[in-house]
Nucleic acid binder design. Sequence first.
DNA 1: TTTGGTGAGGAAGCTGAACTTGATTTGCGT
DNA 2: ACGCAAATCAAGTTCAGCTTCCTCACCAAA
Lengths: 335, 335
Amino acid sequence: MLGVWRLQLLREISRRGSIKAAAEAMSISPSAVSQQLAILEREAGVELLERSGRRVRLTDAAQLLVRHADTITGAIAAAEADLASMQQLVIGTLRVAAFPTAARAILPDVMTALSRQHPALRVTLRDLEAAESLTALQMDEIDLAIVDEYDEPARIPDGGLEFCEFMRDPLYLALPPEESSMAGAAVRPSLDPGAAVRPSTAGAAVRPSLDPGAAVRLSDFRDAFWIMDTEDSHLGQVTLRACRSSGFEPHVRSNCKDFSVIIALVEAGLGVGMLPGLAIHDRPVRASIHPTDPPLARRIASVIRPERHSHPMIVSALAELERFGAAYAPPNLLG
Amino acid sequence: MLGVWRLQLLREISRRGSIKAAAEAMSISPSAVSQQLAILEREAGVELLERSGRRVRLTDAAQLLVRHADTITGAIAAAEADLASMQQLVIGTLRVAAFPTAARAILPDVMTALSRQHPALRVTLRDLEAAESLTALQMDEIDLAIVDEYDEPARIPDGGLEFCEFMRDPLYLALPPEESSMAGAAVRPSLDPGAAVRPSTAGAAVRPSLDPGAAVRLSDFRDAFWIMDTEDSHLGQVTLRACRSSGFEPHVRSNCKDFSVIIALVEAGLGVGMLPGLAIHDRPVRASIHPTDPPLARRIASVIRPERHSHPMIVSALAELERFGAAYAPPNLLG
DNA sequence: TTTGGTGAGGAAGCTGAACTTGATTTGCGT
DNA sequence: ACGCAAATCAAGTTCAGCTTCCTCACCAAA
């Protein structure tokens, strides 16, 4: 009979593209993998690996076997999950990946809650961007991914992964604090269209008197300097789109990947910027934070492999995330 | 991870009901099974076997695991089948079971044809009654079962086995040959209702002149002696039912399991009897063979495990059976 | 109750499958 | 040409899993 272990090695070669990489992933030597594959070829009676230079390619037969290996491995995983869910034992190691903001704002809370409820559970955390964590999930390097999604309809065909949105994170416009010396110079909402001037020629425009936490319209800041996320980031693109659909092209002063840098720049009065709520969650900021009108938000979802759906480790973690999402209140808008 | 080999041992225990039996089935020692089960219990973290006296019972968790083991084993078998079908290699050992008549009339032909086409294929044959071969199939002791079915609507819920009817076998009424000295005494169709007398008082009634191979009505033989299959057999019951629905209770002279005995008795002029076509296939009989009006037939089907459906060994065998079924002509009715 | 038979399970030892290490081959880039 | 990187070969080594032999528990018959 075909050896399951050998099939899994083949599967890993297919995933990672080389014997060496597969060997590292399974933490054995490349030689062992090579030998096992030779045995598998004897078992199957077919060539499985084609040497092409110093690399190997999978034959058609091998790819067929990989598909079967996937279902076999899935069936075994399902058995383990069922078993674990039967004994309701939350035990083992839960490997989580989250995008940086979530890793900072959500996970500490969730991880301590999980550890408190299930002392036998170990939780490890990596911070990965959404796309990275999805591939990591498919590579079975993590058990749970926390990803953010900005585009409403989007749901990439992610190879049978299971998404579950557990909270929405509103996007806010951050304005320089009242006391900022440069508030007037940098942020000049054109309350009076006729008074609008180009930022380069910015004078001492009057900052509008806003109630803390009051919603603002982006178009009021058509002439302000904008501190943006990088353009290739989702938030950057969403911000850009929002400005354009409000009828203007923002004057971008700087593109910063790190939200704390954006906050610092805004607090220094150098411009306005969009920030997701989580970026200022539980963190006092001097900048003035305002919801937008119409409101903008990103969706935050958990992603798991479907065969682990009923695993108690996963169930507990998802429940904890749901709890966090339900309790998640907009940040203190009075800052 | 759960060991597949251990899961299969558990599965076998579930099938056969005891560790000893499972050990024999897997051809290892009972001790080895016991040890592997202990390891599996550690892996699963649950009690799997409950000692009840000197026997073991499976716990709920174990039954759950057995179900998963079934799907896992099925997935592996499917992989092997796909692999074999990809390389179109008919090789290995095909273990066939057939009911005795089929084993005699069908299998020699089919086995020689298969061996001729696929020299690397070994075919083994056991003769088992239909019910026995179905359980053997589920026990994975055979790969292919040939079964007969008499009841039209019947199809027992046979645990996901795959049936395929490949031929019908007509049932014939066998009458003593013309030259039989006892023909008149034993077989007295009541052409004239008034002439009917009880067999025990049978005199020298006149045997009707029948064209060889002409269809006959059972009711014409309401007063004849009947040579029947055993009453617990399907054929016996079907015969009995057919007589009753023709409006009479047959006078049973003897119940014989072996068709050749029935033939001999009929040829000796001791009575009439129902015979399936296969029983006289390619075998000269002196008895006079007649289809019935209305016609009766049994259905003959191949049965396999569904995951082997595409295995070339199976495919070839089924094709060969289909060929036999298509070529199967009614036996020589002029005998 | 004793006694013999049967099935589960533990201990010790053996075998072979699968791993590691180190040498060898082969292809590729500089 | 040279060196590096990846796969593979040939050893030696480790350990999972088997067998054999044994004990224990249960049941049935004497």
